[in-house]
Write a protein that binds this DNA or RNA. Structure first.
Lengths: 127, 127
DNA sequence: CTGAATCCCTGCCGATACTG
DNA sequence: CAGTATCGGCAGGGATTCAG
């Protein structure tokens, strides 16, 4: 998103992205939101924060998530460096999905999202 | 999103949303992501974190943002309890937009998004 | 100056069917 | 078991136009 102004302790004072005037994929905020973007994404991440999972374990944990979207999400999270795919030889095919170290660091991010969302006057139906 | 598992200090241990198996608007994570959802949204919030703004000041700060999307975003942020609209009498019409206290608390959230996005092996083009 | 209404195009997501 | 291919519906967002 291209911020700054957020009030960082000390760092990133002159990051050019902090003053962008249009959405750009290079902005750190955009990068994170892109990693988490789309329906089901955060639930998949939550599931993997609990431990590594197979494809069918993920389907079992999220029963109404379609194959297409699940593989879309796993690919998206792989591209973002959040999830690692571990294929093991033999039959039947066994594949394990696990968070990378970088992926694990989404924990505090999701916590911040959780905290804000549970913290206040959320909607304002009318006034 | 419906988490928990994120590793909270102590709170919210048995929040039912923590174990949801499908996306639900009631989940705190979803609430926050909904508030920030959509193109331009975080940039509008960043601008307001710097201080209150008029409609045309926002347009000036974000020159390629269309009227439709700007008013959509301001309405969305209003519904989410992030932004407050302050209409002042007289002519020409003067309206000021400012963050609510709850809106100001998005600062740390955006900071967390910024930090993760600037922090790691972001994409993995191929390997 | 501050918006709301409309139009159209694009991309997301869900369901279904098929492959290795 | 672990996915990919295809299709259709719907919502998001940009440009333009109109209104208070």
């Amino acid at each position: 998103m291209t911020h700054r102004t957020v009030g960082h302790p000390a760092g990133l004072p002159d990051d050019p992205h902090a003053n962008v005037t249009a959405p750009t994929p290079a902005c750190p905020v955009e990068i994170t939101l892109a990693a988490l973007h789309g329906r089901w994404t955060t639930l998949v991440v939550r599931e993997l924060l609990r431990g590594d999972r197979s494809y069918s374990e993920l389907r079992a944990a999220l029963p109404t998530l379609s194959d297409k979207v699940l593989s879309d999400r796993l690919a998206q999270l792989g591209e973002a460096g959040v999830v690692e795919r571990d294929r093991r030889p033999g039959w039947p095919p066994r594949v394990r999905y696990a968070l990378t170290p970088h992926g694990h660091r989404l924990g505090p991010v999701l916590q911040a999202l959780w905290d804000w969302g549970s913290g206040g006057p959320e909607p304002r139906g009318r006034g």
